[in-house]
């Protein structure tokens, strides 16, 4: 078990992975300097996801780990996603069905979209 593991480690060139990661880091800093919003978002967060995936796969050896470890981690992320999407409708608005948070209204002029659920 550990021998196979050690074998597999030999095949990974860690320095190469590290060089790619560093290159992507440079990209993620240069990208936002262009000043286009979607380029910034992709450069900042898209690359962060790719970098995290590479660290996970090659440094944490998820690429050669048992599959269910990956499922464990992914389930934790799913629960987080659930938390985010369950909570964000409330926290990301400054008013509810029977309250308005005046101190907390966004300064942006555009109307925050709210659905047809508001009867009051």
């Amino acid at each position: 078990m550990t021998e196979e593991h050690a074998e597999a480690h030999e095949h990974t060139n860690y320095i190469k992975i590290w060089a790619i990661l560093t290159f992507m880091l440079v990209l993620s800093i240069l990208g936002p300097m262009i000043g286009i919003k979607w380029v910034t978002l992709i450069a900042a967060f898209g690359i962060a996801v790719v970098k995290a995936a590479m660290v996970g796969a090659y440094f944490m050896h998820l690429n050669i780990e048992k599959r269910y470890v990956w499922y464990m981690l992914f389930t934790a992320l799913l629960f987080l996603g659930l938390f985010f999407f369950g909570v964000s409708p409330d926290v990301m608005k400054a008013e509810g069905s029977n309250w308005v948070n005046h101190n907390n209204m966004p300064v942006a002029t555009e109307e925050v979209g709210h659905g047809d659920g508001h009867s009051e």
Binding site: L80, F83, F84, V87, S88, V91, M92, A94, N104
Partner: peptide
């Protein structure tokens, strides 16, 4: 996640 919610707001 809490930070991101506030940040988007």
């Amino acid at each position: 996640a809490c930070y991101v919610m506030f940040r988007l707001r």
